[in-house]
Each structure stands twice: as C-alpha cells, then as structure tokens.
Design a protein around this nucleic acid. Structure first.
Lengths: 350, 350
DNA sequence: CTGAAAGCGCTTACAG
DNA sequence: CTGAAAGCGCTTACAG
C-alpha cells in the first residue's frame, strides 16, 4: 500500500527491445522508417509488457494545437435551441483546453443559404482538423462532407437524423420512438378522442423529421388503442400570431380533439394561445425545454416535453473528436440519446 | 491561423519576477519558505500575466498515486441497485487512470453490521485520500466521517439524502419532489380513487426516505386533486412471496385503489404478482430501472419508473474528488440529480 | 533505417 | 529564504 508500482513506459520498452526511444515511438505511431524486423520485435515487447502510452506526456511534448470547427445556426429568437448544444461545446472546450483542443465557431442565420455557403467555403479553406455539425440542412453540406472525406477530416453530427454516411460519429435522437412515446403519454391522459398534430413550418425542420415522429405516434396508437386517432394541421407560414384563427376554427369544428402534439420546439407559442383560450382542457406535448416553457408547465397548459439532452450532445461531439484525434481511441459510430420526459414536477432538476 | 501562441508558463513568471522556478512553484502552492516580499512580487506577476498552471505537466512530474476508497454495499440480488453506481465509478477510474487516480473498493453485505464495521476500520487505517459513500446507513458511518474530518480527507455522498454535513460534495436525489412527480403521473392515469403506497421493508432504506416520497405525493394531491387519496400498506418482513396474501386482501377490501406506488427499487416483485392476477388495471409506479423491469414495462404492468441516473452519480463522485484533489478546483457542495421518467417507450435509450 | 539529445511545463530533492 | 538541476514520459528535429 502506498508503494507506487512504476507504470511501464516507452523507455522500458526500448531497453527490453534493445532499440532507441525514437524507434519505439515510430512503431507506436506507425510511422515510416522502421525495418520490418525491428518493428515486429518492438511490437512483441509492447504486447508482452502491456505498454500503455501516457497521454499526458504525449500531449505535453506535442506542440501543435488542434482546431475543431463548429458549423451551427447562430442563436436567435427563432433558433434558441442552439444555445444548448453550444453550451455543451463550450463546456467541453474548457475541460479539454489543456489537451490542445481549440474550437472555432462558424455561425449562420437559419434559412440564410447565402451565409451557409459562405461558412462552408470558409471551412473548406480552413485548417480545422475536425468538424461538428447538424444534419438538419442536408443539401447545403454535401460538398463540405465530400471535402472532409477527401482531406480525411473527421466530422460528428449532433441532433442527427439517422445518417450513417462516413461521419466519425452520429449523435442521434430516436424520432420515430419519440412519437411512440408521445402517444403513450397521451394515452395515459385520455383513452379515446383525437390528437391534433401541428406542423408549424418556417423552421429548419425538414419534413422527414416531423414525418417520423408522426409515424411513430400513429404506429403506437394502432397497436395499442384504436380509439385514439390523429389529425394533421399544417400551418405553412408560421409566426407568432398568424395561426390563431385557423387553430380556433379547427378546434371548434373538432370537439373530439383532446390533445395537441407539437413535434418541434415551438410549443410555447401554442401554449400562449391556450392561456387566453377558454374551454375544456386540451393536453399538450412538445419537444425541447426552454425557459419560456416553465410558466406553462406550472399552469398545467403544457403537460409533457420530450427532450434530447442538447447540451450533452454538444459536449459529446467535442469529446468524441478529442478521443479520436488525441487519444486515438476507437469511437462508436452512433450515439443514441435518451428520450427525457419533462413535466411540471421534474423540470427544476433538468 | 495555425500560429500557436505560446501559453505562458512558470518559466515566464520566474523570469518576469526575477526569481527561480522553484520559488514560483512555492508561491503557487502556498508552500512555506518564501518571504512575504517575494511572495507578493510573484503573485503580482502571476496575476498580471494571467498565468494558468498546466495540469498535464504538473501531474506528469508528480509521482504519488492518489487512492480513493469506495464504501458501498456489494452487488447481490437484494442490492442489485449498486451495480449502477459501481459501473460509473469504474468508468471514471478508467478515464482518470492517467491522472494517478486509483480506486479501492470496500464492499459489505447489506444489513451486515459486523462487516460494515470491519470495512470502516479498514478505511480508517488505510491511506486513502478521498472517500465515496452513501448516506443510507447513517449510524454506522459517523465515526468514519469524524475520522475523515480529522485527517482532512474529503468524502462524497452518492444517493444522498440531503446531508450537508462536511462532505466535499453531496450528490442528491430530490425525494419529496419525486413523490410529487409520481402523484402527477398517477393523476394523468386516473382522476379519482386511491393510491396504495407499499412499504416493503427489510431493505436498507431508512424510514425517512420512504417518508419523504410519501409526503411529496400527498402534498401534490392535496394541492391538485383531492379526489385522489393515499393509503399506506406496510409489509414488514418483505420477501418474494410473503406479501401476496396481504396485498390480495387489501386490494379486495379496497376496490377504489387504482394505483400502487412502490417507493423503492422492488417494483418488479409487485409486477410479478400483477402478472398472474386477474382483474382491472392497476397503475404501477416504482423507482430505478433494472433489466427485470423491461418485461413488465412492455406488458403495461409497470407504467412509470422514476430514476436517478445511478451510474452518473458514481461517475460524478470520482470526478468531483479528482477535481478537488488533483485539479484543485472548487467543487459544488450539492449536485441534485434529475428525476428521469422511464416508460415502455423510452427505456431502450436509458 | 536508427539513435542521441533537447524540450514540453511542471515537481522534487539537494545545496547553500 | 532561495536557486540550480534532474526527472516525469513522451515527441521532435538532427545527425549518421
């Protein structure tokens, strides 16, 4: 006890294999300039002695910084969501600063294609060594991904929509399953009636994201309770007030509607509407948890929010690139985030 | 871009302050043997240059290993829960092995006071530099805590029941609030009737843990829906079969019971009972998520499980001791874990 | 293809 | 009270 057994290092390997330190280093990093014979000899010794590289020492003696690019929408009122992944990214950056990791942000306004293209070109012409992005705007980024592939730059998707492509790692949300979950929760609230699925457009969500959630919801209902059905309402040019009349009409025409499912992060707008509205309780389930939602959770206007740990996603993206680039670890191709359920009674600890 | 601005180090400080490296080191670590005048001079320079110590280098040059003791129940059938914190602890250990952190496990059989005392004595006589434990068996550990205090050994509670004492950090579960949450969930399932609170004894849970959850549940109900009330059933010498008769009788006598709340991790035993039982649906809410629960979630026998990220708790405990002992960081006194809600439709991603 | 030596930014005896 | 020097386990030119 207390006797600190020495960890075996490159020096011990060199001595045992009867070569110089530099040679062991070359073998470890698979660098050219070692004869087959020497290489084999060294590898055998490494294996036998159970040598494990000391990353602290390795990093200390290295000099070059590693820059990771982050291509994400800027945080604005209509894309407040991105605040959370960014927080996680910043947190990871702070923790890893000692390991020569640097982050460079490439922001763009959502839906501003011109700006996106600009950022993409900047990234292509940069000397970043890894990239974090989201899969939500597929068309624009194909060229960037091709460039990364060619330059062997690893990239990680967050908030990803099942794209295996050649990313180092894809951090995903189970969309279909989140729709099933929402259906299950509605089914605890009422056992027959209709769920209105609100498609609020003019956001960055692509149709298949909403579509998958909707499919999951319908799959659950047809398996478990056919007395609940869904109806879709599309509000094409969504803004804070424009939807009120059409929603009022829809609810008036369809008194059997008992719940509303808002498959993106805009539930607070709908909740605001219900705050003013008279009439029987309608259950509300949405996505993501914002400060603005608290009031409506407290007032029983929003019942459940399904969340994807966005902060953790950003954090993990940086960590996975770090593990790959610095620790040379194997990184899992897919990370599937849990589906967290937020209610009035547990949001405080989220 | 790419130009690697040099980080300023101890050497730069020494030069600027016109002293030797060792002196700067002494000042940084507040070691004795520096004149007031020199110390002030060095501190001023450190402040002006914005010097930040390089922990990698610091760790590399240090030699002594840091051993953390872990005093937790061994993993057995009746205390399977502890598998999860242990997993988190092992994970953290692996990640921090490079930083000279070592873990030493001190296991004991639950309820075996003799063994607990033995382990406590071993810990007192060991040279550990930090301790991880749980607050669930208060009486036995007071002497150990007193010893830690005296030796200035930091300790961290996981699965903690609001004990601020002098721990470095207390990783807590909001018990009262979890009872409120369970009540809220029951209230989505039915709007009048009775909730049976099952006290299954012969576990390590102390009465106040169950009691707080019960209080939370009643508080929610009296605030939100007085048409739902609770009833307690105590099963003193709980084992897998002994409870069946009394439960059957209770349910027979009280047809108004619509839900059962099991405020510890034994819900699977109750679910097994309901699997065989005929009759109307009774909603079940329990704590913690085990492999055995899956079947019952899938069959709609267990409706909700409230979980506390036990793995993360173990992980965090090690990390906090690491931050305190090695990184010399300020550590938050309290970490409150989120209340995760697990259902049939999201357990797969937990 | 191989090796000796300096250096990364600290800590730790040791000498004065 | 202060400093010079060796060393932690690697990487990186440089020389051969």
């Amino acid at each position: 006890m207390g006797k600190d057994e020495r960890v075996i290092g490159i020096k011990d390997v060199a001595k045992a294999a009867n070569v110089a330190l530099a040679t062991v280093d070359r073998v470890i990093h698979n660098r050219a300039g070692v004869s087959k014979k020497t290489k084999e000899k060294v590898l055998k010794v490494i294996d036998k002695m159970g040598y494990q590289p000391n990353i602290l020492a390795s990093n200390l003696s290295k000099s070059k910084k590693i820059v990771l690019g982050v291509l994400l929408p800027e945080i604005s009122e209509e894309s407040g969501y991105w605040e959370f992944p960014m927080k996680g990214i910043i947190k990871a950056q702070k923790e890893l600063a000692q390991y020569r990791i640097k982050i460079k942000i490439y922001n763009f306004k959502q839906n501003n294609n011109e700006e996106i293209r600009k950022r993409i070109l900047e990234l292509i012409n940069s000397d970043i060594q890894g990239l974090i992005l989201t899969s939500k705007f597929a068309d624009e980024i194909e060229i960037l991904l091709a460039d990364c592939k060619q330059k062997n730059r690893p990239y990680v998707f967050i908030d990803s929509n099942i794209r295996k492509i050649d990313s180092l790692c894809s951090i995903q949300q189970p969309l279909f399953e989140s729709g099933e979950l929402a259906a299950q929760l509605f089914n605890y609230c009422f056992t027959k009636g209709e769920i209105l699925i609100l498609h609020l457009k003019k956001t960055m969500d692509t149709e298949d994201i909403i579509g998958l959630k909707e499919k999951g919801m319908n799959a659950y209902l047809s398996d478990n309770n056919q007395a609940i059905v869904t109806k879709s309402l599309i509000i094409p040019d969504f803004n804070e007030n424009g939807f009120e009349n059409v929603l009022t009409k829809t609810l008036g025409d369809n008194p059997q509607i008992k719940g509303i499912f808002i498959p993106n992060s805009k539930v607070a707008y709908i909740a605001k509407y219900f705050k003013k509205r008279e009439g029987k309780k309608i259950y509300l389930i949405g996505y993501d948890f914002f400060y603005d939602d608290i009031e409506f959770l407290e007032n029983n206007i929003i019942d459940f929010l399904i969340c994807q740990r966005p902060e953790e996603q950003g954090y993990l993206a940086v960590v996975k690139l770090f593990e790959h680039l610095i620790l040379k670890k194997e990184v899992e191709k897919e990370i599937i985030m849990p589906l967290d359920i937020i209610t009035k009674k547990n949001y405080k600890y989220y």
